[in-house]
């Protein structure tokens, strides 16, 4: 028995959500009295791989096959399942990222394993009972899911579990899995990635705008505020439907569900569908000129006022604060 964590690299680097997954997997290994092995696929420098030991991985299986340079979920799932079998892992952890969502279900089927996607807490393990809490109804509720299979797969939500130092000595081992051509049918032709921006699903701070901003030309102040805070920008559904902002920025029930440390909503009234996607944010700030906006009911801090007067004040105050 052991715990296996898949460490997703992006352009040869690990992101914060990977260290969260490693810390989470290490905590489960401690709960079950076993060791943690990480599996990395793609070209990652030795130093980055060894850094995983800082968070409790005592072994890293390093897969560098050229065919696996880009993410192909079918082949990656086969590699991770093979690694799990090699390590006799009965619990497999990964980040609930875009790639994780395409990967975890395939791993689960390969290993006849129950899957909890969007886990928000450590499992409760009591005798033979294994339960994990996850988000459900787009953030309107949580569902405690019991995994009854021998092997279990957990996809951890970003920002749900902090990074914890748990240094152990780490051994990096080269791993050459059996690759099958049928798993390499889908081929990535092009990757477009803005690396200079904070990405929305794993951002710690999100600044979001709604129809109250009146038009796409007014997003400059939203971006300036987000830039000062090191935040990602987001928007409400009407805004992305009107093509003021791209769909990838739409947060809410039919967009992306997020749980940052700080969510600042500007000119968003707070329809139930929007609240569903953001209500698990730790601190919510609402700026709206309508004192009756439903969003104020779930906010921690509120400013009733015109965004075009309030936001520039915030930008000035933030510049002073940071000076």
């Amino acid at each position: 028995m052991s715990v296996l964590v898949y460490v997703e690299q992006v352009e040869g680097k690990f992101k914060k959500s990977v260290f969260e997954a490693v810390s989470y997997a290490k905590a489960i290994a401690d709960q079950t009295g076993t060791n943690l092995t990480a599996v990395s696929i793609g070209q990652v420098e030795q130093g980055q791989l060894e850094e995983l030991g800082q968070y409790g991985a005592s072994k890293v299986l390093n897969v560098e096959a050229g065919e696996l340079k880009n993410f192909v979920n079918q082949a990656y799932a086969a590699v991770i399942a093979e690694a799990a079998q090699k390590e006799s892992a009965d619990i497999i952890v990964l980040s609930n990222s875009f790639s994780g969502k395409g990967l975890a279900p395939r791993i689960a089927v390969k290993l006849k394993a129950g899957l909890v996607d969007g886990a928000v807490e450590l499992p409760k393990i009591d005798g033979g009972i294994f339960q994990v809490k996850k988000t459900a109804f787009s953030g309107k509720a949580f569902a405690v899911t019991e995994l009854t299979s021998a092997v279990k797969v957990i996809a951890l939500n970003p920002n749900a579990f902090g990074i914890k130092d748990a240094p152990v000595s780490v051994e990096v081992e080269s791993f050459s899995p059996a690759l099958q051509s049928k798993d390499l049918v889908a081929v990535i032709k092009e990757i477009v990635r803005a690396t200079d921006k904070v990405t929305l699903p794993d951002a710690e701070i999100v600044v979001s705008g709604g129809r109250g901003l009146k038009g796409p030309e007014n997003w400059g102040m939203v971006e300036e505020l987000a830039g000062l805070l090191g935040a990602a920008t987001a928007c409400s559904k009407p805004v992305s439907d009107a093509d003021w902002r791209p769909h990838s920025e739409h947060v809410g029930q039919t967009g992306i569900a997020i749980s940052p440390n700080l969510y600042i909503a500007i000119g968003i009234s707070g329809a139930i569908q929007h609240l569903a996607g953001v209500s698990s944010s730790k601190v919510i700030v609402v700026i709206n000129k309508d004192p009756e906006a439903p969003f104020f009911k779930v906010a921690d801090y509120g400013i009733v006022g015109d965004a075009f007067e309030v936001v520039p004040q915030l930008i000035e105050a933030l510049k002073k604060h940071q000076a």
């Binding site: 689960a108 006849k112 394993a113 129950g114 899957l115 909890v116 339960q131 809490k133 459900a136 953030g139 309107k140 509720a141 949580f142 569902a143 405690v144 899911t145 019991e146 995994l147 009854t148 299979s149 209500s279 698990s280």
Partner: peptide
């Protein structure tokens, strides 16, 4: 392989 045993509201 899995079942929901309990719901919680935030």
């Amino acid at each position: 392989v899995a079942k929901i045993v309990q719901f919680e509201t935030p």
